Computed example of a mutant assay.
Amino acid sequence: MLRALFYKEWIKLRWPFLILGILGLASLVQAGLTLRYLVAMKEVGELWEGLIIKQQMPYASHLVFPQFCGLVLGIFQWFPETHKRRLRLMLHLPLREGLVVLVVVATGLFLTLSLALAHGFGLALLYGLRFPGEIVTALAWAWAPSMLAGLALYCGTAMVLMETAWWRRIAGALLVVGFYRMLTAGGPPAAYAEALGSYGLLTLCLVIMLFLPVMRAKRGGSL
């Protein structure tokens, strides 16, 4: 039954996943062309000054990809399940409600994280071929909060779609937007290094909050 549930979610998300994968590949191609242009047009000293001293990040525009993945997969996965309160049908499967939601959420998070990791690895490989490890490390520190922001957007999208009370939708959306703004506030690449563990725990709390609508439904309350 668990395998069938996972397969159902995969069937639902396979086309968005494939399209996002193509977009991620296009992003990497653009990043490679941009990097090639910078290396060809700028002198070595100017390029290194921008990357190391001024902390300029030519890859910054590509870091929104994990966030876009979380938003899109959250919509495509949860809108069909919550449209006209169809979530109740899923909760009538011969499995515990918490286990059903865990499998569905884990599938969405896994696919979001897979796309983010593949894209981040591609960026690291592009910059690692031309620059030393310090630049790649800075890229990784800049990518990590963007990845957490993508997971947060997935949770926020699912939360808003699962709730039916408008005040809970608004409260959940404000919570996620506030957390998202914290993760994308900008700054030097390593600005989130010390607090990254705390941000990771807060992201986990958002995942746990997705079980609240199911608990209310199990007690007989409204979704």
Rank of each mutant, 00 (worst) to 15 (best):
L25I: 12
S27H: 02
S27A: 14
S27M: 08
S27K: 06
V29K: 07
V29Y: 08
V29L: 15
V29R: 11
Q30H: 10
A31V: 03
G32L: 06
L33F: 08
L33Q: 13
T34S: 14
T34Y: 04
T34F: 07
L35T: 15
L35W: 07
L35P: 02
R36I: 00
R36P: 00
Y37N: 11
Y37K: 15
Y37A: 09
Y37I: 02
L38Q: 11
V39Q: 14
V39F: 04
A40I: 01
A40D: 10
A40W: 04
A40Q: 11
M41A: 15
M41Y: 09
K42G: 00
K42S: 08
K42T: 06
K42F: 08
K42D: 02
E43T: 14
E43I: 01
E43A: 08
E43H: 14
V44R: 15
V44Y: 10
V44N: 09
G45W: 03
G45S: 13
G45K: 13
G45A: 14
E46A: 15
E46C: 03
W48H: 13
W48F: 11
W48T: 02
W48Y: 15
E49M: 12
G50Y: 00
I52S: 10
I53K: 14
I53E: 12
I53D: 07
Q55L: 10
Q55C: 03
Q56S: 12
Q56G: 10
Q56I: 06
Q56W: 10
Q56P: 00
M57E: 12
M57T: 11
M57Y: 01
P58V: 04
Y59F: 09
A60W: 04
S61T: 09
S61E: 09
H62P: 02
H62S: 09
L63H: 09
V64A: 09
V64L: 13
V64E: 05
V64S: 14
F65D: 01
F65T: 05
P66Q: 01
P66S: 01
P66W: 00
P66T: 06
F68K: 06
F68E: 01
F68A: 14
F68Q: 03
C69E: 07
C69A: 14
C69H: 01
G70Q: 03
G70P: 06
G70S: 05
L71V: 05
L71G: 05
V72C: 05
V72E: 01
V72I: 14
V72K: 00
V72G: 08
L73N: 06
L73C: 07
L73I: 10
L73S: 06
G74D: 06
G74I: 05
